[in-house]
Amino acid sequence: MDGAWLWIAFALVALATHIPRGSFIVLGQRARLPQPVQDALRYAPAAALAAIVVPDVLVVDGAVQLINPKLAAAAVVLAVAMRWKNPWLPFIFGMAVLLFLRKGFGL
């Protein structure tokens, strides 16, 4: 991957970030999104985040594995994040579980 391609990719992600952000603030009162569209779009972030995270913790070397260190760590992260508001705890517990399983048991 050459350097110029990387910066084009960054610029594209920047555009795909700042057009949504600026959209209605910049357009002002001239534009309003239809209600059904607003309703449906509400689900985009949850669907997008899950579509990225779930394969990462469920798939090992191309195959679904229901017992693996990442999935165990993910379960702990979810439990901690649901129980406590502290933003550091999911990172501390999640990494502790993952490293314990990987280093301690060589998984």
């Binding site: 594209l12 992600v13 795909a16 970030t17 949504p20 952000r21 600026g22 959209s23 209605f24 603030i25 309003r32 999104l33 607003q38 779009l41 509400r42 985009a44 972030p45 669907a47 997008a48 985040l49």
Partner: peptide
């Protein structure tokens, strides 16, 4: 990126 940022359209509106 657009999918991940769609929430901003809603915030912006």
């Amino acid at each position: 990126a657009l999918a991940l940022n769609l929430r901003f359209v809603i915030f912006s509106a």
